[in-house]
Nucleic acid binder design. Structure first.
Lengths: 230, 230
DNA sequence: GTCTATAACCGGATAGAC
DNA sequence: GTCTATCCGGTTATAGAC
């Protein structure tokens, strides 16, 4: 039990797999996803084409590895920024700005994220086991943004907000994909303004007058959150 | 001038093109998009593979023809239903229910719609010239749903609502894609409940107390509606 | 200039030997 | 676990027929 935490030395297969991922990520960065062929990945990793497919059933799974890396970078960029903010709008803005900065280098091929996210068969969609971790961790980040803030959130709403905010962030990314303005000015403007609106809406939601409406929304979100369940 | 409206008889090329579309639509319906190969389409249309590509630069453009047909079917299904409703929630529900019924037969391959809609390069995305018509006509349908209703809408909001509702309908379709419940029960529940909420929200938006918040939202939507502009 | 066909290319994916 | 050989389908080049 005491030494269970010591990771075993990587087997040969694990090292090969690692080489393939590393080669793929670099090629994706340099040339984009479509322009990177499995043959290029295999060659850069020093393995045969068939061998690359032995480790990654298809090209999308390599893309999934790429997203995981981007996601880790987002978490790493967002958390220190959160430490310096208290107001909810500022905290949401910190999370979203970190996201936009991390993904900026990949703008030219980020449409793929959506192609895959929308496809129920794809390992990248948030309801697919392979993509579920990233979605959960993304929600967790928003949960942290909420709990650390000075704004009081009605508890029924608090339970659903991380999921809603994560969905919101996906919407922002979708906008960003189409944003051709210099420096993604428009997306940044959208974030600045929507985080204010969200913060306002959350404050409004505590207003007793709006309680029935809030209850309805919360109930709706709770009931219908998982379309893939029967 | 007087005979300008008489369409010229279809040229040989036009008839060939028509045959190709018809063959493709039938094959898509029967086997789905991925499983339908360009070679199958060409053979079913009685032309060579190269000839099919002469008329349709790529497979996506055939898919675009398919979407156009689905879209026409939606318009045709929705309009008579609108004629029988007055309450806003009912009218929105009529439009959405017509949509869900029309697309139901294509559930298994509808993920493609999103793959393409999210991709800035795709002819199907609403900001791309080839896809813009469908988006505009979709908004037009929602505009009709609004103007024919008994609910009074503040005029600043009225200008933006058709676009917002069209976006909403895309969101519903995205949910529907992932919906595995029998009879798409969950999506129908989502529609029933969201149209009520939207109708309530629109009524709330007329409330003078919420005017500043409404102004903010409307202004935001107006400013940022077109991410592809610079 | 409009239309049609054949052959080839390229890249994702698979089969099967070692 | 690794390779080579091959398949398959989207796409392109190109030549020729009407």
């Amino acid at each position: 039990m005491t030494d269970a935490a010591v990771p075993p030395p990587p087997s040969k297969g694990e090292r090969t797999k690692e080489r393939i991922v590393a080669a793929a990520l670099e090629l994706f960065r340099a040339h984009g996803y479509e322009a990177t062929t499995m043959r290029m990945v295999a060659e850069a990793a020093g393995v045969s084409l068939g061998n690359a497919y032995y480790y990654f059933e298809n090209k999308d799974l390599l893309l999934a590895a790429f997203y995981r890396e981007v996601h880790e970078a987002h978490l790493a960029a967002a958390r220190p920024r959160l430490a310096r903010k208290r107001a909810l709008a500022d905290r949401l803005s910190a999370v979203m700005t970190a996201k936009l900065e991390v993904i900026e280098p990949y703008h030219r091929f980020s449409a793929l994220m959506f192609r895959s996210a929308a496809d129920p068969e794809s390992p990248l969609n948030p309801f697919h086991p392979a993509g579920a971790d990233i979605a959960r961790e993304g929600e967790q980040l928003f949960a942290e943004a909420l709990t650390g803030s000075s704004t009081r959130v009605p508890s029924d709403l608090a339970a659903e907000l991380p999921g809603l905010l994560w969905t919101y962030s996906m919407g922002i990314v979708l906008y960003w994909i189409h944003d051709r303005s210099p420096g993604r000015r428009k997306t940044h403007a959208l974030v600045d303004r929507t985080v204010e609106m969200i913060a306002s809406a959350i404050k409004l939601a505590s207003n007793p007058l709006l309680r029935p409406f809030r209850k309805k929304v919360v109930e709706l979100v709770r009931d219908l959150r998982f379309p893939t369940e029967v």
